[in-house]
């Protein structure tokens, strides 16, 4: 896997946002929508492995950063699912070759920015599940500091403006969006689940749920299976 990474950008509300590209010379490209919050960090290595494997199979791919994440200058407390959908729309507009979307975990909550593009999803997450994990992480760190917090208090705090959950500044609007968000229903979706998952999917893939690990890791079995499935999906 020796593909060249291109550090590209797209403009969103006056700021440059990072956008990684691999295999831009290929006829087709897939727009990858990363997992949200902490899960993104744990799966980034795997996503880059997928991009390199796609390139080896003659398919390009693009991985945009969402405003307010990584190096973005966009204020994190102004980020919301609606903002991220708009950013993906802006990014997508400069990528004519991207006619397919592959979204991962929480990324499946915002892949409906493009209603008509075919979508491939890995282990789609509900917004409320992401929120509950982040609230539990905050409660655990509060407990270590000798404080007692519960979800009702954190929900009230969020409604008053913003709440810090597991290192993320979550605005009132992001909080309420996450409470309700589920992956959109669409006819043109292929859903992949892990073989160990209890959920039914269109296809089951081998490998491990890297998003649940304590530390970021790689899993070439999973990235290989994802890339192979994406290649067959995009050619079908």
């Amino acid at each position: 896997m020796t593909a060249t990474l291109e550090y590209s950008r797209y403009e969103f509300q006056g700021n440059d946002e990072l956008c990684l590209k691999v295999g831009g010379h290929h006829a087709q490209s897939i727009l990858l929508i990363p997992p949200l919050f902490d899960e993104m960090n744990r799966m980034r290595r795997m996503l880059l492995d997928v991009m390199r494997l796609l390139d080896a199979n003659g398919i390009g791919s693009v991985l945009p950063d969402l405003p307010g994440t990584n190096e973005s200058l966009f204020p994190q407390q102004q980020a919301s699912l609606a903002v991220w959908r708009q950013a993906l729309r802006d990014c997508s507009n400069i990528l004519p070759k991207c006619q397919h979307i592959a979204s991962f975990r929480g990324g499946c909550l915002i892949d409906d920015f493009a209603k008509d593009m075919p979508k491939w999803r890995l282990s789609p997450a509900k917004g409320n599940a992401l929120l509950r994990t982040m609230m539990r992480t905050r409660m655990a760190s509060d407990k270590e500091a000798g404080l007692s917090t519960n979800m009702v208090q954190l929900t009230e705090e969020a409604q008053q403006g913003a709440v810090n959950l597991a290192g993320n500044s979550i605005s009132a609007s992001m909080f309420s969006e996450l409470q309700e968000a589920v992956p959109s229903l669409s006819d043109d979706v292929r859903t992949a689940q892990l073989e160990t998952s209890a959920h039914t999917g269109d296809i089951k893939l081998p490998g491990s749920a890297l998003w649940l690990r304590a530390e970021p890791d790689e899993d070439l079995l999973l990235s290989g299976a994802i890339a192979t499935n994406l290649v067959s999906w995009i050619s079908s």
Binding site: T133, M134, R136, T137, M139, A140, S141, K143, A166, L212
Partner: peptide, 8 residues
Amino acid sequence: SMAVAGLL
């Protein structure tokens, strides 16, 4: 404790 949050 973070893993426990995800586990629950």
